[in-house]
Amino acid sequence: MSDTSEDWPLYEVFLRGKRGLNHVHVGSLHAADAQMALHHARDLYTRRNEGVSIWVVASTDITASSPDEKDPFFAPSGDKVYRHPTFYAIPDNVPHM
């Protein structure tokens, strides 16, 4: 049985994009503390897009309402062009790509 004192707590991540009006929940990650969580959120959820505002909150600090709440939709950021499928020059006659 391994030592669980090495395990990092869970943080929820909220992002507001450059053209966004408010922060949106995009998921969670593990970090040892809030500062690390912020760094990790930038790496994982924004690929370090500079214009995005990030909030991280320890999951245990969130008070939730009753069932049937809806989580907001989130969209991935695209700061590197080779992440966009349209960038690759695949000839038109290759189907399903």
């Binding site: 391994s2 030592d3 004192s5 090495e6 395990d7 990092w8 040892a32």
Partner: peptide, 12 residues
């Protein structure tokens, strides 16, 4: 990586 994770947890 256990010692690294433990260090971060201890620091926090």
């Amino acid at each position: 990586g256990a010692w690294v994770r433990a260090a971060a947890a201890a620091h926090a």
